[in-house]
Design a protein around this nucleic acid. Structure first.
Lengths: 146, 146
DNA sequence: TTGTGTGCAAAGCTTTTGCAGACCT
DNA sequence: AGGTCTGCAAAAGCTTTGCACACAA
């Protein structure tokens, strides 16, 4: 935890940004809810518990900054709000998601399953891939075993 | 064209919806711009050319209806607006997208490249896949050859 | 006449922006 | 002092909703 904060701090400094208390509080919330796909509003509410004076705009600005630095990925499951997902450290690619149509749960697949597909796309469509987004919609194992 | 409209008409009727002139005009615009990933606003402007009295709300309501009927897919490339993409007729799966980070172009891959990946996900994560979204971000062949 | 569909305007949401003040160097 | 950063409130999108009217069965 502390090491990851430290590394993010260095990443900010390297672009001459500061890790202010507000930014640190926001990052901590993201680290503590790594699997949760929080919206900006969600993050705001959680940061507020520990840092009540923070403003929603600051949270948005911080999330935008972290997105730029590729500390988080901004994703969108089609429900009108952006969600923010911490990148695995050193992960070149973006992990995949399983969205359950029944219970709404979002699970993650950290493993990269697209290696072969990407080779095909790069060769056949002559497209230089920088990143990808893969989401499956369906019924999760919990709902299916009911 | 006319056959496709006809089929959509039947699909609407089967759920006791009507193909009103406004809805038909909207569907025609979608058919005429099949490769374009139009936003609701885009569709509205184009429908207006042929049907100036139409209201934006009607376009939204029609697009929502068509999404329910799975005539179109609602997608989101992360720029705050929803875009609407006609499904290939009879396509069980949703096609993939290539978004160019340089020029913003969005190309489509109709071919389903995820067969093997889906088998793995269904088996290993015990997740029953209903649909998927796959988008690659990178540099398109046009920008790369410049 | 009953119900569906429409256009307009208003409202609702999420997200961004302007600005004055705070903080740090 | 000069820069960055923040909180608040206002503004700016996109999308949805309420309502009265039109139209068709």
């Amino acid at each position: 935890m502390e090491q990851r904060i430290d590394r993010i701090k260095k990443q900010l400094h390297s672009q001459s940004y500061k890790l202010t208390p507000q930014r640190e509080a926001t990052v901590r919330v993201l680290l503590e809810h790594e699997d949760d796909h929080l919206s900006a509003e969600d993050v705001y509410m959680l940061v507020k518990e520990k840092y009540p004076e923070i403003g929603l705009a600051t949270v948005y600005r911080t999330l935008e900054l972290l997105t730029e630095l590729k500390v988080v990925d901004k994703i969108n499951f089609g429900d009108g709000v952006s969600r923010y997902d911490l990148r695995q450290e050193g992960a070149a690619h973006f992990h995949h998601h399983l969205v359950c149509l029944e219970c709404g749960a979002v699970d993650e697949i950290q493993e990269d399953l697209l290696g072969d597909v990407e080779k095909i796309v790069e060769k056949r469509w002559n497209f230089e891939i920088k990143d990808h987004r893969l989401t499956f919609h369906g019924i999760c194992h919990r709902c299916n075993s009911k």
